[in-house]
Nucleic acid binder design. Structure first.
Lengths: 196, 196
DNA sequence: CGCGTTCTTGACCGCGCGGTCAAGTGATCC
DNA sequence: GGATCACTTGACCGCGCGGTCAAGAACGCG
């Protein structure tokens, strides 16, 4: 489905992706039909299949897009911070901010990880994110500032805390993003017992 | 669907739930048809609708069952441990062990949380689990052994770490349960920086 | 304007879904 | 034996799905 698109075309395509994201998040991927999507946009069914080869491909496109965005966001924030521990902290904050601004997409990512068909796409993205974090963790360990445990385990732990707290307190309970980010950072850095 | 069931009937019912769990986990809830389930068991379609009012109700039944099991498991392990921090630790270990033994169900719980229709059932279960952990956390705070942060936030953080590490290292990477549990406990108690 | 390309329409297709039900089978109890 | 109840069968139903396509509209460029 590599069509040459005009500006107008690119906008339609984006419109489809945006609207589908909302419906998928609200209703679930499978229960949302292609007919529903095009009707919601007030266009014919052919429009959908002009821009996407299938419903599945549209979904994959949404997933790829989302992961790219998140990654860019993190890189931008972290770029000129030399201290590894601060990098980790900034990464956590950036992630939670992005989760806040992209609730629908977060839901889709979560769903995708439960279907064999979509999981592989996610894995690549997650592996990259983990490898990134792990790099900073390693530096921190070398500097003797982070506990000498497996960097990948620690990275995943950070990821787990961040994702779960964002979903629970930002999405479900609508608490202030900054407070949640603060709590996530506090827990990741010093756990239940740590700190003075 | 409150039928009076004989022993034979109860076994069939369980058989349906078990097999459906496997198929749902492997294939996804929506993509798995009722026809597929009954064919896999070599029985007629009527059998399914004798025991369950609908595909959705079967799924809800599976979810309820799973949550009940997990809760029982945790309670059994924790019952006669007086120390709150040890209780938290035992809870983490019990959860990871259960996640290990019930991979399929874990997948279903994760999927369920992404569908508006199933999420409510999960929330109740999760709220109970969190409230439980929060009780121990509060005790720990009172004793001055746990940092004075919001107990619910801390509980959710523990939940997030536990779930994520179990999925990643036990389910995906098939690492030894005990090692993963050890890492989860280490991270939850002392975070990235903590330790001596 | 004319012509090629990009985009849009919506009726249509075949399929497989969730769910139904009349008919039948097999235990169990009196 | 026969009545009752628990269970099983599988053909069947209507529907709405993902996807197709012949036809045409709108755009853009010379």
């Amino acid at each position: 489905m590599n069509r040459r698109l005009t500006q107008r075309g690119r906008e339609r395509r984006q419109q489809l992706m945006d609207y589908a994201t909302v419906r998928f998040a609200e209703n679930g991927y499978h229960p949302t039909s292609v007919a529903e999507i095009v009707q919601g946009l007030g266009v014919g069914k052919g429009v959908f299949y002009w821009y996407f080869a299938s419903k599945e491909e549209l979904f994959l496109e949404i997933l790829r897009d989302a992961q790219l965005q998140l990654r860019r966001r993190q890189e931008a924030v972290i770029a000129d911070e030399p201290d590894p521990v601060c990098r980790i902290e900034l990464g956590i904050r950036a992630s939670i901010a992005w989760f806040d601004e992209n609730r629908d997409v977060v839901k889709l990512l979560q769903f995708a990880s439960t279907e064999e068909r979509f999981a592989p796409v996610l894995r690549r993205g997650q592996d990259v994110a983990v490898a990134d974090t792990a790099r900073h963790v390693k530096e921190g360990i070398v500097e003797g500032r982070i506990r000498d445990l497996d960097p990948f385990v620690l990275s995943h732990a950070v990821l787990g805390v961040t994702g779960h707290l964002a979903r629970e307190f930002v999405h479900e309970q609508s608490q202030p993003v900054d407070d949640v980010a603060e709590a996530a950072v506090a827990f990741c850095l010093e756990g239940l017992l740590g700190g003075k």
